[in-house]
Computed example of a mutant assay.
Amino acid sequence: MPMQAPRRNALTPDALQMMDIIARTGSFAAAARELGRVPSALTYSVRQLEDALDVLLFDRSSRQAQLTAAGQELLDEGRRLLAEMDAVANRVRRVSTGWESELTVAVDDVISRLTVFELVEGFYAQRTPDGQAPGTRLRVRSEVLAGLWEALVSGQADLAIGAMMNTPPQTGIELKPLGEVEFVFAMAPHHPLAQVGEPLSDAQILAHRAVAVADSAQRLSPVTVNLLPGQDVFTVPSMGAKIEALMRCLGVGFVPEPQVREALRLGRLVARRVQRARQPSLFGYAWRSAATPQPRKAPQGLALQWWLQQLDSPATRRALLERHLGLPAEAV
Results as ranks from 00 to 15, higher is better:
213 V>I: 10
227 L>M: 14
292 T>F: 09
271 A>C: 00
153 V>P: 06
199 P>G: 05
203 A>I: 04
299 P>T: 02
137 R>H: 12
134 P>R: 10
48 Q>P: 00
82 L>P: 09
148 L>K: 01
278 R>E: 08
45 S>N: 06
7 R>F: 05
143 E>M: 14
9 N>K: 12
292 T>C: 01
59 D>Q: 12
126 Q>I: 13
2 P>L: 09
82 L>A: 08
131 G>D: 09
18 M>T: 15
314 P>K: 11
175 L>A: 10
323 R>K: 10
84 E>C: 04
283 F>W: 05
166 N>F: 03
3 M>I: 07
305 Q>M: 12
10 A>K: 02
11 L>P: 00
216 S>G: 07
42 L>V: 00
74 L>A: 10
51 D>T: 08
306 W>C: 13
96 S>C: 03
234 F>M: 09
54 D>H: 06
328 P>N: 10
248 R>G: 09
213 V>L: 06
67 L>W: 09
111 I>P: 01
288 R>A: 04
5 A>Y: 12
303 A>N: 05
293 P>C: 07
296 R>V: 11
237 P>G: 02
26 G>V: 02
101 S>Y: 08
326 G>C: 07
75 L>P: 07
22 I>V: 07
201 S>E: 05
328 P>S: 06
294 Q>P: 00
163 A>C: 14
171 T>F: 14
6 P>V: 08
182 E>P: 01
259 Q>R: 14
311 L>M: 03
56 L>M: 01
331 A>I: 13
253 G>I: 09
25 T>R: 12
268 R>Q: 14
96 S>A: 13
77 E>Q: 12
204 Q>C: 00
318 R>P: 00
196 V>R: 08
118 E>M: 03
20 D>L: 13
281 S>P: 00
175 L>Y: 01
